[in-house]
Nucleic acid binder design. Structure first.
Lengths: 149, 149
DNA sequence: ACATCATGTAACTAATTAAATTACAATCAC
DNA sequence: GTGATTGTAATTTAATTAGTTACATGATGT
């Protein structure tokens, strides 16, 4: 299974909170406008981010804030918060146990899949929310320069 | 998006061909029994494996064979054959372009996601079909030893 | 040659999963 | 206390994946 847009939307939310904090009210509705989804979807993701200790929220009040510095939030932290122990690769569990292949393929692939998965997660762990925010700002500056020239 | 069972089923097919070659007729139907799926699903996957040059098949005749030594087929080769340029992570493409975040998040995440993806694929590239087959045989031997004691 | 069996693919259906919506209780802020 | 907002459950809708049906094409054995 592919990892759903929940992951990218969650990074979006965190970056949005950092960038627009103090500029506009950070309601689930305003955040949803930026992602072009519904406020409920945003609140659901924020609930997971809150439970994982990445943001502070107050029931009934808007303006959530990051619980840590963007430098100290890695993309892997976000992945964990949203996807938990979801796997990047899916092993077909329904195979014929009578067959040498069907009876052992799961155990055989498990280790190899895990290695690939850990490699990907390790990379995610090296990227911080700050890196993403910086990149967003650079891309935005480039856009503005192009449109003003 | 998570990567579907197509990938693991394809590795299954290749291992099955190698292990049962000469022992039983390698029809799509026999292979399907091991995966516990339909022969059409198997033929569809085998068609992709054939197009990628991993197996030799003959239209109308059974008994496909590996086009290369299992040592020279990596899990990444299989991934490429079946999933092509599918991504492990999905970027939400529908965001508000008017917003600093919504207008730049895709470009910002692209590079970071790609790094994680490449790390995973590189790991897949280091594992060969032979490694998987060896592991399957070891697991099978362990099973037999346990049941005979 | 012919009957039988197998592959290769398209078109369709069913099942699974993810996203969006509706609804509402709980909480905050003025 | 009124109005706005969060948090979450339940439901519906949409998208994706797996499985089925159907059949044309090619091989094999007698």
């Amino acid at each position: 299974m592919k990892i759903s847009t929940r992951f990218s939307d969650s990074i979006h939310i965190l970056a949005f909170i950092d960038i627009y904090h103090g500029l506009i009210p950070l309601t689930s509705s305003n955040i949803a406008s930026s992602i072009e989804t519904s406020p409920v979807v945003v609140r659901r993701l924020m609930s997971a981010l809150h439970k994982a200790g990445l943001i502070n929220t107050v029931h009934g009040a808007a303006d959530p804030e990051l619980a840590k510095s963007p430098k100290d939030i890695s993309l892997y932290d976000v992945f964990l918060a949203i996807e938990g122990d979801a796997h990047l690769f899916t092993i077909d569990e329904r195979t014929n146990p009578q067959c040498i292949v069907g009876g052992n393929i799961q155990e055989a692939l498990e280790g190899f899949y895990q290695q690939a998965e850990i490699a990907a997660k390790a990379k995610l762990a090296t990227t911080s929310l700050q890196d993403v925010i910086n990149t967003i700002r650079v891309k935005q500056a480039e856009k503005e320069r192009r449109s003003h020239q």
